[in-house]
Amino acid sequence: MDYVKPNQVIESIATAGVNKSQLSISHILIKAMLAGALLGYATTLAFTGATQTGLDIVGALIFPTGFVMTLLLNLELVTGSFAVLPVARFRKKIPISSIAHNFTWAFIGNLAGSLIYAALYVITITYFGNIDESIMIQKLIAVAESKTLDYKAIGMDGMVVVFVKAMLCNFMVTLGVVMNATSTSTFGKIAAMWIPIFIFFAQGFEHAVVNMFVIPAGMMVGADVNLADWWVWNQIPVTIGNFVSGFLFVALALHVVTREKKEKV
């Protein structure tokens, strides 16, 4: 059997947090840029599947490909680290300064990789600016505007909505990171990770790194969204919401329950 029990899983997550805290800035940036690009690839593939079939659920089934590649290659996804590094801190394996260091450079790297992929992808779907109308262009515009302007239109209520959707999203994303450690086989890891990532994407929740690609890509092809719309009405509250849920619902919760189990044995 390749199943790993929860208490062992959380110990391995803590060890992974230690390893992440020891990475150099250059390694964090490179690994994070690759992760950002892979999630961009997965997003455009998901949109392709959804537009070709007319079924968004198809896109949700496809999207976890990027997450799976990211974790199997041990790359840096800041939203996943929102649970991994706090677990290491709870187990007194790393200082708080190491958490801030990793989060900062992973965020920058994810953003850079996402923007590079966005620019390259826009070149392909616009034929280097020679086409301004296609199904995929309209999809990117619609998604970018819905992720910003729809929240802006209802003011603070919209801010609450985007924050909650970000919390619901990263509960599943960080759970996907944990599920990766529940198996010692590659197939088992893929199957375990696929489930929570499918759940978040199928329901249209808000993921900071996905949005680092899809909103600027939409802006590049004509979405009526400016930088303030992107950061104020999505990127900043989504990043904070992603952190809160990863920290509370996964890192803290699983640390507590596995610690108590260990103490009772």
Rank of each mutant, 00 (worst) to 15 (best):
G222R: 11
I215K: 03
F198A: 06
V160M: 10
A191K: 04
F198G: 06
T182F: 12
A192M: 08
P216E: 05
L175M: 15
L175P: 13
F171S: 13
I190V: 13
H207S: 00
V209G: 03
A191H: 03
K152T: 12
A192Q: 01
V210N: 07
P237R: 10
F205S: 02
P237K: 07
G158P: 09
G188D: 11
L149V: 04
M172C: 15
P196N: 02
M172P: 14
Y151C: 02
V225G: 01
V210S: 07
V178M: 14
F201G: 00
K189A: 09
T184S: 14
V161R: 15
A202V: 04
F163E: 06
V160Q: 05
D157Y: 10
K165G: 03
A166W: 06
M156K: 11
L168G: 15
K152S: 06
Q235S: 09
F163A: 11
V178D: 04
F213L: 09
V238K: 01
F198E: 04
G188T: 07
S146T: 05
T148S: 02
V173D: 01
C169I: 12
T182N: 09
F163H: 09
V161A: 15
G204W: 01
D229W: 04
F171E: 08
L149F: 01
F198T: 06
I240C: 05
M179F: 14
A192G: 03
W231N: 03
K147R: 08
T148Q: 02
A217W: 09
G155C: 07
G218S: 11
F198V: 02
F213G: 04
M179T: 07
T186W: 12
T186R: 13
W194G: 07
A223I: 11
S185A: 12
I197F: 09
V209E: 05
T186M: 14
A228S: 12
G218R: 08
N170H: 05
F187Y: 05
L149R: 03
V209T: 01
A228W: 12
V177I: 14
H207P: 03
A228H: 05
D229I: 12
V177Q: 08
M172A: 14
S185I: 09
N226V: 14
F213W: 06
W230H: 09
M212N: 03
I240K: 03
I195K: 02
W194I: 00
V160L: 12
K189F: 11
G155I: 13
M219L: 10
F200M: 05
Y151D: 01
K152F: 08
I236V: 14
G176H: 02
D229C: 06
F213I: 05
V225L: 05
T182M: 13
I197D: 07
D224Y: 08
T148D: 00
G204M: 05
G155H: 07
V214I: 15
V238E: 00
G158S: 08
A208G: 00
L227S: 13
L227I: 15
S185F: 10
M219N: 09
L227G: 13
S185P: 11
A202K: 00
I240P: 09
S183R: 10
I240D: 03
V221N: 13
